[in-house]
Design a binder for these strands. Structure first.
Lengths: 338, 338
DNA sequence: CACTGGCACTCCAGGCAGACGAGTGCCAGG
DNA sequence: CCTGGCACTCGTCTGCCTGGAGTGCCAGTG
């Protein structure tokens, strides 16, 4: 059904449309790409491609435009990932190496991605559940008020204020702190839940209330995946979408403000591979004309979290995928070092 | 020069223009506001107002539009601050009371402001320099690596990793921690600099290198105002600006991404009073058509930081100012309680 | 003297017709 | 199976016109 040449034609259509942002006709195709055949032949192929739903024409007498299905085929089978140039790689490394702490790394990464791809960049903070614990600290703020500080191997710090049922002695607190750390340090979040729960039973009944409260908060912090932080940059690039702004940019900006939506767009953090979601595949009404390219990043083999970019479906997929992959790699390296 | 009636006319023009977003003519003015005079008379007044630079006409045969100078006069002398309705106040309080920690307070505040004003909201985290210190913690991450954690009375937590010149003993660390806390707790950032500096001299020469490094980092954290964090919400509201999007929305989005610009827009944190900056007063090319309403907020008499909104110069100033003031008050209350 | 009604003028917005051109589908011929 | 040619469609651009809103000015009036 789908000739090699028909695929060539589809590839050419996608490339031209991405470059010009205008429907592409048979004549222009024959001229710009040397396909070795005449416009008339290309027209026949285009008719077939349209029949199959890979391209469409906005108006009866206009050129063709790729459909979501067409982009999907292009990404899956017709184009690779375009590696970055050496200067670009060097620039990335240089820029990211200058970061001083986790916030800085994430901040620089998201700005870098936005600049590199000329699109909206999204970076998720290293997930808590996949991190290991470096230290747990308990501080007395007031007689009945304790602050719990949790530090991960990626440098992320979470804090919670605990309102205790009664004043807590420094000795007890020191004891609790020591015991908690002895069992959790170096372990992954997901693995310590049971250990922490069991810990409470080794304290005297007198201390139980306070200990239980603290441990419950700790558990809550460990488990509560909900507070996955994301940052974004490059929203100004949305103005490149087209000239039919109001309708198209509005819902996108709204979607970007909903962190829940953002996280869903990036996809499951467990999936480290690069994912491209095109148009309607995003399952979000306002994002029907946008694509998301995301990939996991992490210090070791598996992903700590995800990052990616969001842009119009008519984006330069090979280039964008190359940039996203490269940035993810370097961020992984940086995090592994610190 | 400027009659009472001329001022009435200007007020009417501003109100109508804000409501309709269209140049307003003399006839419509006479009909909608009962100024007690005929359109012809109003035309004369309008000519005078235009002469003085308070209004302008986009085209020769169009109605009049307020200039920045006109809005300025309107804000300063012709309009008050419109208080919020009781239900609105209750909604604010309810929504903010649900916050669990500082991040949550700030996050809720900024979303609330955006929703209330239908504009872009900006909230600055409580400034470090104006906060007092609640606790300083020193943690050993690795033999030569120490983490410094700083907790303020507003619940803000700052952390730094210190790479020490040599391994540091737990005893020394505990001693240092105790001594630091004994002199800094409860004091304001600005007031402890000298005290911290002096502290180093009370240690033995042997411990000096490590102590000096730690204290230097602490000082750096205290002084470095630079890292003032701001968050924003409601960028989707920018699409209300007008139909001539591309030109107008682009530079605004770009400006909003520059935190430095944002902070400058909010103004000096030392100024607790409400500030309205109109159009060119922002001294920023891309924001020539936007106004900023900002005000300090804080638990006590003086401002911890600022918050505000940014919108088109043709905004509802009384309503916006009312919302900004009300939100600032409630945030102040919330922070004072915690 | 201030206000009013009338009048001529300006100029933008929108509708309409026509020319143009890009692009298509189809068909006959190589 | 490919190619060149041809008729057809339709969107865009241009110029033109008209309607209407709004203005400025002027003479008249209390």
């Amino acid at each position: 059904m789908l000739d090699d040449r028909k695929l060539d034609v589809l590839r050419a259509i996608v490339q031209d449309y991405v470059a010009t942002h205008e429907p592409v006709g048979s004549k222009a195709l024959a001229e710009r790409h040397n396909l070795g055949v005449s416009p008339a032949t290309i027209r026949n192929d285009m008719a077939a491609l349209e029949e199959e739903g890979y391209i469409a024409q906005p108006h009866t007498s206009a050129g063709r435009v790729p459909t979501d299905k067409g982009y999907r085929l292009f990404v899956d089978r017709l184009a690779g990932i375009k590696p970055l140039s050496t200067p670009e790689r060097r620039a990335i490394q240089l820029f990211l190496d200058g970061a001083v702490d986790l916030d800085d790394v994430v901040g620089r990464t998201v700005r870098l991605l936005a600049q590199l791809t000329h699109q909206v960049a999204v970076v998720q903070y290293p997930s808590l559940t996949r991190s290991t614990i470096r230290h747990v600290e308990l501080l007395t703020l007031a007689p009945t008020r304790i602050m719990l500080v949790l530090i991960t191997n990626t440098g992320r710090v979470e804090q919670r204020v605990i309102e205790g049922p009664e004043p807590v002695g420094e000795n007890l607190l020191a004891d609790l702190r020591a015991r908690i750390n002895s069992i959790v340090v170096g372990k992954r979040f997901a693995d310590v839940a049971q250990l922490v729960q069991d810990l409470g039973e080794s304290f005297t009944a007198e201390d139980r209330p306070i200990v239980t409260t603290v441990l419950a908060t700790l558990l809550d912090t460990l488990v509560e995946q909900q507070e996955e932080r994301v940052v974004l940059a490059g929203t100004a690039n949305l103005t490149r979408f087209g000239t039919d702004f109001p309708m198209t940019i509005r819902p996108v900006l709204e979607a970007l403000e909903e962190h829940v939506v953002l996280l869903r767009l990036l996809g499951e953090a467990t999936e480290p591979a690069m994912v491209v979601r095109i148009g309607h595949e995003n399952m979000h009404e306002g994002l029907a004309a946008t694509s998301v390219v995301s990939v996991g990043y992490g210090s070791g083999d598996e992903a700590l979290a995800k990052l990616g970019v969001l842009g119009p479906t008519r984006m330069d997929y090979p280039g964008t995928m190359g940039a996203v992959r490269a940035v993810a790699r370097y961020v992984g390296q940086i995090l592994a070092e610190s």
